[in-house]
C-alpha cells in the first residue's frame, strides 16, 4: 500500500500539486485520472521520488520516502518498476538489452540467468522472439510499450507505475495493454498505479480511481461509482465524449 498525505509540489512558482492525499491499495489497479496538464505525471514522479516534494508524506508500506537517505531510496527503487509515458527505452540498446538493463544494475545473477529472465518477461508480454534483437526505433509504438512493461516487471517489482500506458495506441492495442497490466497486478500482487485520461481504460480496469483536477484531488472511488457522482468537474471529464453521454442517458432511462 502506498499512502500519500498532504503533498505539495511547485516548479519555480508554478504550484502544480496542491495538498494531495490518497491511498493506493496492493494487488489492484489504482488509477489517477484527470485532464491533460492537471498534474498526473508530476504526482506520479513525486511518489517515486523523481521530483522532490515541497511538503507532505509518501509512505511505501509505512516507509516514508521524503525521510529516506539516498542509499535507502536505492533499496526501495529495486522494488519499483515504471512504464513511462513515451516508453523511455534506451535507444542505444536492443530490445533484449533494454529488459536486461535493470537486472544488470541490481541483481547478481549470471549472464545466462539474466537473459533467461529477460526472455521470460518479453514472452509474458507477448512479444515475438524475432523482435528481441531489434532496436527500439525499429518496432511499433505498441511493441515499445510492451518492451517497456517487460523492463518494468523484470525485477519483480512490488510497486508498478504506469504513466499513460495507452497514449498513442489504437483502441484494440490499448485494451490489450490495459488487460496485461491488470493481469500482472493480480498475478504478482503488485501495488499498481496507472495514470490515464482515457475513459475506456478507466471502465476496463479502474478498481480504485483518484480524480485530479488542477493539481487537487477532487474525487476517489471505483468504476461502478464514477457514473453516479455529483461532481461537476468529474462529470465534465467523464462525459466529455458522446459515447459516455449516451451511456448515462440510457442508464437514467432504465
Amino acid at each position: 500500500m502506498i499512502e500519500v498525505k498532504n503533498v505539495d509540489k511547485s516548479f519555480d512558482g508554478n504550484h502544480v500539486l496542491k495538498d494531495v492525499s490518497a491511498t493506493f491499495e496492493t494487488g489492484i489497479t489504482n488509477m489517477i485520472i484527470g485532464q491533460s496538464g492537471s498534474g498526473k505525471t508530476v504526482l506520479m514522479k513525486s511518489i517515486i521520488g523523481l521530483h522532490r516534494i515541497d511538503h507532505g508524506e509518501i509512505k511505501y508500506d509505512g516507509r516514508n520516502l521524503p525521510d529516506m537517505h539516498m542509499s535507502e531510496i536505492r533499496i526501495l527503487r529495486k522494488e519499483v518498476g515504471m512504464l513511462f509515458q513515451g516508453s523511455a527505452l534506451f535507444d542505444s540498446l536492443s530490445v533484449l538489452e533494454n529488459v536486461m538493463y535493470p537486472l544488470e544494475m541490481f541483481s547478481s545473477s549470471t549472464k545466462e540467468e539474466m537473459t533467461e529472465r529477460a526472455r521470460f518477461c518479453l514472452s509474458h508480454v507477448n512479444l515475438e522472439e524475432k523482435a528481441f534483437h531489434l532496436a527500439p526505433s525499429e518496432i511499433s509504438g505498441g511493441m515499445q510499450k510492451r518492451v517497456a512493461i517487460a523492463r518494468a516487471i523484470a525485477l519483480q517489482p512490488k510497486y508498478l507505475f504506469c504513466d499513460e500506458p495507452n497514449s498513442g495506441l489504437d483502441p484494440k492495442t490499448s485494451l490489450i495493454i490495459d488487460r496485461l497490466i491488470y493481469e500482472i497486478t493480480h498475478e504478482f500482487n503488485i501495488t499498481t498505479i496507472i495514470n490515464s485520461h482515457d475513459m475506456n481504460s478507466v471502465m476496463e480496469i479502474g478498481e480504485n480511481i483518484i480524480f485530479i483536477n488542477n493539481g487537487q484531488k477532487a474525487w476517489q472511488g471505483n468504476k461502478n461509482e464514477i457514473f453516479h457522482v455529483n461532481n461537476q468537474k468529474l462529470n465534465d471529464f467523464v462525459f466529455a465524449s458522446n459515447l459516455y453521454k449516451k451511456v448515462r442517458e440510457s442508464n437514467q432511462q432504465s
Binding site: 517515486i48 527503487r77 513511462f84 509515458q85 513515451g86 523511455a88 538493463y101 535493470p102 544494475m105
Partner: peptide, 13 residues
C-alpha cells in the same frame, strides 16, 4: 525529454 534519464534514475543509476 524522452524520460530515459528518469528511467535510469528509477533503476537506481
Amino acid at each position: 525529454i524522452t524520460e530515459q534519464i528518469d528511467a535510469l534514475e528509477i533503476m537506481g543509476v
